[in-house]
């Protein structure tokens, strides 16, 4: 590990978990969102050293073996995935949102996902996916 290396670099280039994405590496896009000890963070903003001893869950950790997590399944079914580069970060953000609130209204969804950029979908299908997943988990 080199000094100043980010958690995102560690995950992608050293641990072989490239699921978390690197669209900006400046904390602006959310494509690198992972759980750090249960809290969603931008992995590009966390120094790798800071993560020492912490539990990190990435998009690769959401599914239960062959079984997609309901949030993942909802993204697929709702058409919320186009190029999919934003998807890993959004899945973690939505997973977290639904863990905190099982019936978010639209302004709540928009606010919760405001840090996750998507260039393809215009977000509508992502909102559909959140509602679909929320409805199923209630």
């Amino acid at each position: 590990m080199e000094a100043g290396e980010s958690l995102l670099f560690l995950l992608r280039e050293r641990v072989g978990l490239p699921g978390s994405k690197n669209a900006c590496e400046q904390g602006e896009c959310g494509s690198c969102t992972v759980y750090l000890d249960g809290t969603p963070v931008c992995a590009c903003l966390v120094a790798a050293g800071q993560a020492q001893g912490c539990e990190v869950v990435t998009v690769e950790g959401l599914a239960d073996g062959d079984e997609l997590h309901p949030v993942q399944e909802a993204f697929v079914e709702a058409g919320a995935v186009q190029c999919g580069f934003c998807t890993p970060g959004l899945l973690v953000a939505v997973h977290d949102l639904l863990a905190r609130c099982d019936d978010p209204d639209e302004p709540q969804i928009r606010e919760a996902l405001a840090g996750n950029l998507c260039r393809c979908t215009g977000y509508e299908k992502i909102f559909d996916a959140v509602r679909l997943a929320a409805g199923r988990s209630r």
């Binding site: 699921g19 998009v59 997609l68 697929v76 999919g84 580069f85 899945l91």
Partner: peptide, 12 residues
């Protein structure tokens, strides 16, 4: 390609 994309397995 959606399953691979939501699993983080899709190779960009």
């Amino acid at each position: 390609d959606a399953d691979a994309k939501v699993r983080g397995d899709f190779a960009y």
